[in-house]
């Protein structure tokens, strides 16, 4: 990755037109095979390195906000960057550009599959594809759990264990006790918020006692 050094005082690149935003994101939507990580890398390369519309720091901050937004992170990122580039029209252009090719191809693949799904070979193929999806899903689960578990462990071994218990407990609550998913999600968030809030308060008290 070769980046030309920032020249202080160089004029910032001109704001792109919604039409250009649409074209760039259409290309991203068409190429983004390989799931979230691959798509994120493509978007980053296009808007940070190639066109230099967004700074590295702004891109990281935007991506962090997308982690705490409901729904598909990559769509949230598309919305934030689209707005940076061309306001409300930019949001519409970026979303449309990303989704038109990718959702269209998903639809075509599904339609093709739906026609052939009763063929014996297709069923045999699917019986093997399902466990492959599960294997890849395990990897996704690991990637999703790693950031929160790492930051908890950095706060102490007890907090790390608490995180693992929260993860396992939420799974057990659904698998064994059949509690509603939304309820489990809200409860886990509330418990974790309370633990984190109490810890912060204790740290603040200790800091105050130390400064006296």
């Amino acid at each position: 990755m070769t980046m030309p050094p920032e020249t202080p005082g160089a004029p910032p690149p001109a704001a792109p037109s919604p039409w250009l935003v649409l074209r760039v994101w259409f290309a991203l939507g068409l190429q983004s095979f390989g799931g979230g990580a691959a798509t994120l890398a493509l978007i980053r390369r296009a808007v940070v390195e190639q066109h230099r519309w967004v700074s590295e720091a702004d891109f990281s901050r935007d991506w962090a906000l997308c982690q705490i937004t409901p729904g598909i992170n990559l769509l949230a990122l598309t919305i934030l960057i689209g707005r940076r580039l061309a306001g409300a029209a930019g949001i519409a252009a970026a979303l449309l550009g990303l989704l038109l090719p990718s959702a269209g191809l998903t639809l075509l693949l599904t339609a093709f599959y739906a026609r052939a799904r009763h063929a014996e070979a297709m069923q045999a193929a699917l019986n093997a594809v399902i466990p492959a999806t599960v294997g890849l899903g395990l990897l996704t689960a690991y990637q999703m759990a790693r950031p929160p578990l790492q930051s908890l462990r950095a706060e102490g071994a007890g907090y790390g264990l608490f995180g693992v218990a929260l993860l396992a407990g939420s799974g057990a609550a659904v698998l064994l006790w059949h509690l509603p998913v939304v309820f489990v999600l809200c409860a886990a968030g509330a418990v974790s918020a309370a633990v984190h809030g109490l810890r912060a308060r204790r740290l603040a008290q200790r800091a105050r006692a130390g400064s006296r």
Partner: peptide
């Protein structure tokens, strides 16, 4: 804290 708890529960249920 809330965001972390939510993320961990999502993974547990995903299993």
């Amino acid at each position: 804290g809330f965001m972390r708890g939510l993320a961990l529960a999502v993974v547990g249920i995903f299993f």
